[in-house]
Design a protein around this nucleic acid. Sequence first.
DNA 1: AACGTTCTTGTAAACGACTACAGCGGCAAG
DNA 2: CTTGCCGCTGTAGTCGTTTACAAGAACGTT
Lengths: 338, 338
Amino acid sequence: MTLSARPTLSQVADLAGVSVASVSRVLNGLPASREMTTRVRAAVDSLGYTPDARARSLKVGRTEQLVLVVPDVGNPVYTGLMRAVAAVVKDAGYRLLLSTGNSEVAEEIAILDGLSSGYADGVIISPLRMTEPILQALQRLRHPAVVIGTPPAAVPLDAVQADSAAGVQLAMQHLVDTDRHRIAFVNGPVDTVPGTARQRGFDRADERLLAGAGRRYAAAAFTVDAGRDIAERVLDDRPDAVLCANDLLAFGVMRVAHSRGIRVPDDLAVVGIDDTDLAAVVSPGLTSVNLGSGERGAAAARLLLARIADPDRPAERVVVDPWLTVRESSTPAREGDR
Amino acid sequence: MTLSARPTLSQVADLAGVSVASVSRVLNGLPASREMTTRVRAAVDSLGYTPDARARSLKVGRTEQLVLVVPDVGNPVYTGLMRAVAAVVKDAGYRLLLSTGNSEVAEEIAILDGLSSGYADGVIISPLRMTEPILQALQRLRHPAVVIGTPPAAVPLDAVQADSAAGVQLAMQHLVDTDRHRIAFVNGPVDTVPGTARQRGFDRADERLLAGAGRRYAAAAFTVDAGRDIAERVLDDRPDAVLCANDLLAFGVMRVAHSRGIRVPDDLAVVGIDDTDLAAVVSPGLTSVNLGSGERGAAAARLLLARIADPDRPAERVVVDPWLTVRESSTPAREGDR
DNA sequence: AACGTTCTTGTAAACGACTACAGCGGCAAG
DNA sequence: CTTGCCGCTGTAGTCGTTTACAAGAACGTT
């Protein structure tokens, strides 16, 4: 089975009684006589010939493969991204390699450096932390690369970024509009890309809307468990709304609220960020800021394809606007309650 | 940047003043004098040389890449699988290509057939439906392949399968043990791999434990929305427990229960299948049958690696035992309630 | 001193496809 | 009947590695 040798160009050529060059030309749509075309086609069909991707990529210098690097394949935060990238990449006729850095900077760097063996034509990376080593790895990369995140403005990299600050502002405005004023902000680690951006967004919105009265908390990680841990402290402070830096944290908070008998949304509004698939699944549905992860993935893929097509184009930054998906977790407290 | 030519073996050889063969030998750990080794190493370092994966794979006939085909990249049902496969594959030094058939048989077949171009060394596929065309595509494949699912016993394929029937039995036993007797079974489409297996499992368990009194429902798809749609009808029949063929359906049911004021688990126990990450996230936490998707993914990856190492080994089938993760959605109705 | 080992190293031929170049026939213009 | 052009096809070199083979060096044995 695995042993049977695949037919090669020259076998097709022999069978058709023509040269390998002619076969190659027919297959690549270069000019050839009608007679030639039909003979080659026949031989190709009868042998079940398929060009060898390995040989082809050696010769033409392209692999038709792109890499997507995410911190964690299984994290719902990245599934929207993955789906969108996969779709765009596939439509463009490329294959998609999925690499996970396991949330380790060293692994992410190893992946970027490994690309120098030329196994793919370009890379999209969504680094968890935008550290100096990552930026250096990106800059010594000889391949087209697109970053999902916000590298320093001075670095000439194609990048797609969310507008976290605007997203946080959206959520805060919504909470204030629905008459919530004791708003707690539960962030994850501040030394991460999303952590800093969301913190800055909250600080600004807090200043503007609450005159700086909002309370801030930092969970140990962007996970449900971390959300649960911090929720104990947060809920002790009796807020009427909690804005979480991502959906997972929000779920953690909702669970603790549930077990304490705090009703959502009646007693407490909860809002998340990322609008993962899960937000629509839980009861009550979680209001969440959609940072356009699908849009960002698609945009990143398109930027990468554009750069591959023209390596000399100037670096471009795309900012995707967020929107708010309102679900039950933040609808106004029902009349007659209380 | 992209333009600068990568150094090649012969450039390294020139710089070191030795032949390309020697460089290749040093790099591949074949015997070489100490002197030779140090000279080559120095030249490699000073040029920043990395072997070209394309040329290498042409010559050695391997790509060091494996493909994983799943119906939908973003579906939480597959994330455990993906994570496990990614980990095993990476540890073995292979890269992972992720392909999605978009839940279309035709696309899955196209991916399998496309493999004949040799862009990867093997494939793991988790087909949504185990149809004849898929089986044929698998059999004409010249590459090692492992199926996650249950192909007909007569077909000599490496496969990893869940024991859905045992899983359903586990769930049913748990419900009966916790004093639930009006049990409804909400399946997805029966013409799918999971659909048939779970239906069979329920029929058997129903016979054994409820003397055939269980009611059966079939949702239009394995999704939250389909679960929500069918739940209206299911709940009208006033069961005291609902066993759903996957977690997403269960979430749909829980939402409708929530909106109707039916308390889970007090009035209604809900159990899902797949034990996705989401099950631990929702409130109340969803009791779910874990069919060992991580274990299956890891097993599939190992089977594939074993077959690549020895193409002549007999086809092997691995069955992964399920277990039940009990969460709040099915804990006994509280004392003093009602 | 001649010979056989053993160990290193270099030469050159692959792997399978693409493509620059040259060769060939046919045809129209002179 | 040349000449020139054009369109098609084949020859052969190339992409960057790996590896079979052979040549050469170093050494011990007789």
